[in-house]
């Protein structure tokens, strides 16, 4: 779920912009200049993938993919998340323009976390790697949901209820996301294992 305009107090929105600008410059510095066009192309793939809806009982959920972005892109993940969200905001209004900083922090930090966690398991046997990937991406969504709840709660006591509901709504997403990630990793491990063992174009943690 993306935060729309006008939900966060302006101070919080601006502070989030400042923080995510910091993370963005770190992410830019850690990405080699010649890899930037490749990050952009991969980001568009993630962007399109996040539009896929997975059926879940009577409704459907759409994938958030912070975990996979972190696993495949390493340090560049924050950059990818920020640009993806910016384009989503500009094209579809998924997430407001003034809340962009908050949305980027909420998804980008978990992506980094899951990448950092997964990097220890890159060369593990298949089963362990898939399990680690599923855990990393499930945790990433859970952390993102906690971030969302915290940001909403910053709006004052009025918003505590909404924050709790938003947190609860993410429980099924955590499960779906973990399962889909496991399945993607299994596929990529069979088809193009170097993508997992090295990260995309060796975008490992440098």
């Amino acid at each position: 779920m993306h935060i729309a305009d006008g939900v966060l107090p302006t101070k919080v929105a601006l502070a989030c912009y400042a923080l995510s600008a910091g993370c963005l410059s770190l992410s830019l510095r850690k990405t080699r200049a010649q890899d930037l066009p490749k990050v952009a192309v991969m980001t568009s793939a993630f962007f399109v993938a996040s539009l896929v809806h997975v059926p879940l009982g009577p409704t459907s959920v759409h994938l958030l993919l912070p975990g996979l972005v972190g696993i495949l892109l390493g340090w560049s993940a924050f950059l990818a998340v920020f640009l993806g969200l910016l384009l989503q905001c500009l094209l579809f209004q998924f997430g407001g323009l003034t809340a962009l900083g908050a949305n980027a922090l909420m998804m980008g930090l978990p992506a980094w976390l899951s990448g950092a966690f997964f990097t220890r398991f890159r060369n593990s046997p298949d089963r362990v790697r898939i399990l680690a990937g599923a855990m990393a991406s499930g945790t990433a969504v859970a952390v993102a949901a906690c971030g969302l709840a915290m940001l909403l709660a910053l709006g004052g006591e009025d918003f505590f209820g909404v924050a709790k509901i938003a947190l609860a709504a993410h429980v099924p997403v955590v499960v779906v996301e973990a399962l889909v990630t496991a399945s993607v990793l299994a596929f990529v491990g069979r088809v193009k294992p170097e993508l997992i063992t090295q990260g995309a174009w060796k975008a490992e943690w440098r």
Binding site: S44, L179, L195
Partner: peptide, 30 residues
């Protein structure tokens, strides 16, 4: 698609394919 293991499995292959193809495309684009 439905709410079952099969769907998850196939969606995983689907997205995995998308990523593998895009990664190969990044090289060509670059």
């Amino acid at each position: 698609p439905g709410t079952n293991r099969r769907t998850i499995h196939i969606l995983g292959n689907f997205l995995g394919m998308l990523f593998v193809r895009s990664l190969e495309r990044t090289e060509r684009v670059h």
